[in-house]
Design a protein around this nucleic acid. Structure first.
Lengths: 303, 303
DNA sequence: AACCTGTTTTGTCCAGGACAAAAGGAGCTC
DNA sequence: GAGCTCCTTTTGTCCTGGACAAAACAGGTT
């Protein structure tokens, strides 16, 4: 056997951890970690435990820690630091117990029960309350569990799939809609779709006419699509992991390109953290503010 | 103004074209194209027309052409070569006219009409016929139009979004299901989700119990999820763009990891092209074969 | 606290060399 | 002519080590 799949090549490590090859080499050069073995052609081979540590490092660095301070810590110490970052637990106890039982289903891979529970909760609460009071805290909990390594890739994907099925059913069932016409999408490096779908569900349920272009839309295309489609509002979504600076730059650029009569909304964690406002861009720091923002737009139009 | 956004840095070109930085530098070194300008710090700045040519080159290379033979051709010549690649048009004329009118809606960004037309077609044909006779040829046409540059990123995303909404509604409406239990997903470099959803829709409509993990699942996770969930079948989807060799390697590896009593199905263009069978893997060369394959599995179990 | 300003940290870029993996082609056999 | 093996060319990815901008930090001033 020539290949040992427990040791990964640098390209595989980039895929698995999200750390670019250049950064992996730089850390090795500067800090002495990672210290991959070499194959017979002098190419790096990363053992599984180093990849695991890199994964933890990446998560902490994305949270704002500096790699130089973390690099010597053990896997256990890094795990604990991630554990400690479970701030902002859900405030309402009823919502918390509801969410925890759902997470439990997820952890046990009880996909059919998960589907049914989500569906029943949606029917009981109605679409708007479901999105605001159940999905929003649930997303945060799943995100935290993921950061802490309590759930793995399959659980996280399963969750995303189930929620997508549910939200897209709800959105599809509404159809039509009047003003405002809203174009929803994300910037090129943003892959998370749930924030977008939650916003779309809320807006559609209030009679707005929404078109989603999904994730990863280049700025020039957002601009041209918004003009061509006669939209009133362009709404962007940013997950917690998105680099705040890049978001601010892109928003300024898009704002400059769009005509003045098209509003620009931006929502999500990456944006909420930055206090510096961008002129002409409405910042939606919490999903709850979506509907009031819609009200405000309609009121302004009536005047 | 220090930045001219019509010239892109190398990282942006990698994002826009999908060509890795290393490859961009190598082509420049070897073939003299692209020949980006440099900014004041000697960093590459790619003009928009070179980026456009790179985009066309990437598409042709993905189709199997060699970069060395194409690199000197003009943008117009490359466009024509992509035009020429519109083989395998839809055989049934009724389906063709249906599909072309849908593509026309897409091109005009008539998203609401598009949604309504798809929905009506689904109701008229029923789920199975809709997937097989409408979506499958439509996917091929949209893919070709995309390769030829007749439609842009926003149109392609809009199409994907609308079809996702529709299919996920249909899947979500069914619920439950009996044996076989099927786990659906794709390998790590595969992002296309529509093939997966189409397969899921077909299987669910015949009473199978499906769980989708979405796209991009590492092989080790597929294996563990399949064992933990008590699945009978693992079904993988490969789009036309997926490198056939990587698919074959991954399938062998997964087949070796999975216990014998879990079947492994693989479908999609990348697989259909390779005639060499992998022992223990069922190749589904056409979406139409999905339901017969299900029949066959049930018949084998009854015996 | 809010605002500058210099310093340190960190990531991305560059050049040019090397070589494995993939594709193409030539010659052979059935 | 299809299928096979072996050889050549093409192509992409990896390597090293240097450079420097951009971001984060720290310290002093208003």
């Amino acid at each position: 056997m020539s290949k040992d799949s427990s040791k990964l090549a640098i390209a595989a490590v980039e895929r698995e951890t999200g750390l670019p090859k250049d950064t992996l080499r730089m850390w090795e050069r500067r800090y002495g970690f990672p210290q991959p073995e070499r194959d017979e052609h002098d190419e790096r081979l990363y053992p599984a435990d180093q990849v695991e540590k890199l994964r933890l490092l990446k998560r902490l660095v994305d949270q704002g820690m500096r790699p130089g301070k973390l690099i010597e810590a053990s896997i256990e110490a890094l795990s604990e630091m991630l554990q400690a970052r479970q701030e902002q637990s859900v405030d309402c106890p009823a919502a918390a117990s509801r969410c925890n039982s759902i997470i439990e289903l997820l952890r046990l891979h009880r996909s059919e029960d998960l589907r049914r529970t989500l569906q029943q909760t949606l029917l009981k609460q109605g679409l708007q309350a479901f999105v605001i009071d159940t999905l929003a805290p649930l997303n945060a909990l799943v995100g935290n569990a993921w950061l802490r390594g309590e759930i793995q890739v399959p659980e996280e994907h399963l969750y995303t799939e189930q929620v997508q099925n549910l939200l897209r059913s709800a959105i599809n069932a509404q159809g039509g809609g009047q003003r405002p016409r809203v174009l929803l999408t994300t910037f090129p490096d943003e892959l998370h779709v749930l924030g977008l779908l939650m916003a779309e569900a809320l807006l559609v349920s209030e009679g707005a006419s929404c078109v989603s272009l999904g994730t990863q839309m280049p700025i020039a295309n957002i601009d041209s699509a918004a003009r061509a489609g006669g939209f009133d509002i362009v709404a962007l979504s940013f997950s917690a992991a998105f680099p705040g600076r890049q978001a601010a730059d892109g928003l300024s650029q898009l704002r400059a390109a769009l005509p003045d009569n098209i509003a620009l909304w931006a929502g999500g964690r990456a944006i909420a953290a930055r206090r510096d406002a961008i002129p002409g861009v409405s910042i939606i720091t919490d999903i709850r503010e979506t509907l009031p923002a819609l009200e405000a737009w309609r009121a302004a139009q009536a005047a």
